[in-house]
Amino acid sequence: MDPCEVEFLSEKELVSIVPNFSFDTIHLISGSVGPFRAGLPVKVPIWLAVNLKQQQKCRIINQDWMDADSLNEAKEEEKLSKLFTKMPSNHYMEEAQLLLNVASDDISDADRIKTAIKDIWDIRMSKLRTSIDAFLKSEGLHAKLDHLTAMEINSVRPLLPHALDQMLRIQTGGRATQSHYSGTSQ
């Protein structure tokens, strides 16, 4: 999957906004949004929030977890823990990227939040790398990937699944994988 596609998925997450216009409920396939009352916070999907923000029709309220101090705490915890810790959102990186890009004027401390999230991302990515290597060398048959987020999982694709497939091929003589891979990619 392309990172853009993962980002697309993350746009379904909800975020609070304060609209500066009034409008009835919008009925969409994925659910109804609104009604919008000027000055009253309402929860909308990120894609709508970004769109409204670009038209200067709302103010985005920060996600609860997007707060420099608690993120720094999470960072320390991530550093100390050997395993992956639970992230506040399955799409933390994409949400941060999207919201901080369009609404850096609405979010106080945007720079510190950005730095903290980048640090967390880096720590987790290096952890992921070492654990993949340990996993391959340990001859383990399965790995538990608790608390990994969508973008992080996507970052090891297609390298890791392909490598595992090739290992199976080397082990079994290339016969067992045939039925699986007739004509599919990724």
Partner: peptide, 27 residues
């Protein structure tokens, strides 16, 4: 082959991190 596919994925990820939103292409 593994190296090239991994490298391509990495390049795309880096691009995304740099530019944020860009246009979706048809799968």
């Amino acid at each position: 082959d593994l190296f090239l596919s991994g490298q391509q994925a990495k390049i795309r990820l880096v691009e995304w991190l740099k530019m944020g939103t860009n246009e979706l292409v048809v799968s």
